[in-house]
């Protein structure tokens, strides 16, 4: 029997190793799997590389992971958002490595990793400082930059509803990076507002099929 359900956030993040590459869904506060991040922070893992769009708001979720010293490096497109004080402190004191990646390139690097594509060429960032040191190539008269795929050891995502097979549906714009990150890691952990019975989610509407998901935990949002 497949049962991906976990009892609580701590059990859901059990076994994540030091030095892991962790993909984290969300766009600003919307869709950020804050409670899973906080549970991971409580486990005091070290040396994580996190791949996510923003660098956390406030001292919870991604912010707490950084505050607790779990993160060595962040790969993101836009670290500074309202309330990203922890990031700013660590970055300015040189305690956090930052790799800035255009937003669509993050999404595509993770998608490529999920799809078994090692690298791809994109127009994005050609001719800019972010293309320095990267292979460039011309196709049909247009210039492209090569980008490598990202494959996560772990993905932390947030969804609206899930079932014991790991199928997920989202709510409005909380979807954002979550389905992409969910596809891109060896171990994908989803926090949902509600776990429903198998069959309650309409197969026509499932956004993340359970094949991508390893653990599902129902959590109330502690941080509104």
């Amino acid at each position: 029997m497949i049962d991906k359900r976990r009892q609580n956030a701590d059990e859901a993040v059990a076994g994540i190793k030091d030095g892991s590459i962790v993909l984290i869904g969300g766009f600003g506060m919307t869709g950020e799997p804050r409670e899973l991040c906080s549970a991971l922070a409580a486990r005091k893992v070290r040396g994580l590389t996190i791949v996510t769009n923003n660098a956390g708001s406030g001292e919870f979720g991604i912010g707490l992971l950084m505050k607790q010293g779990c993160v060595d490096k962040i790969v993101c497109s836009f670290p500074r958002v309202p309330g990203s004080v922890i990031f700013e402190e660590l970055y300015e004191s040189g305690k956090l490595e930052l790799e800035i990646v255009p937003q669509g390139t993050i999404a595509e690097r993770v998608r490529a990793g999920a799809a078994g594509i090692a690298a791809f060429y994109t127009r994005t960032s050609w001719g800019t400082p972010l293309a320095e040191g990267k292979e460039a190539r011309t196709f049909d008269g247009k210039d492209y930059v090569m980008e490598r795929a990202i494959r996560g050891d772990v993905a932390l995502v947030k969804a609206y509803k899930g079932d014991r097979w790991g199928n997920l549906v989202y709510s409005k714009s909380m979807r954002n990076f979550n389905p992409v990150m969910a596809m891109g890691a060896e171990l994908t952990i989803a926090q949902v507002s509600e776990i429903v019975e198998l069959g309650d989610l309409d197969p026509e509407n499932i956004v993340t099929p359970g094949i991508f998901v390893d653990r599902v935990v129902q959590l109330e949002a502690l941080y509104a």
């Binding site: 766009f27 600003g28 506060m29 919307t30 869709g31 769009n53 958002v81 309202p82 937003q103 669509g104 993050i106 999404a107 595509e108 993770v110 998608r111 994109t122 127009r123 994005t124 989202y170 709510s171 409005k172 714009s173 909380m174 979807r175 954002n176 990076f177 979550n178 389905p179 992409v180 956004v207 509104a224």
Partner: peptide, 30 residues
């Protein structure tokens, strides 16, 4: 809080609007 735009500002949807994930969103862009 679950319905924001690129500037993280709250928005509303028109009838006919659609949600999709980031890889599809940037596929539309790129």
């Amino acid at each position: 809080p679950e319905l924001v735009n690129a500037g993280k500002r709250p928005v509303r949807m028109l009838p006919g609007g659609a949600f999709f994930h980031h890889a599809d969103s940037f596929l539309m862009i790129r």
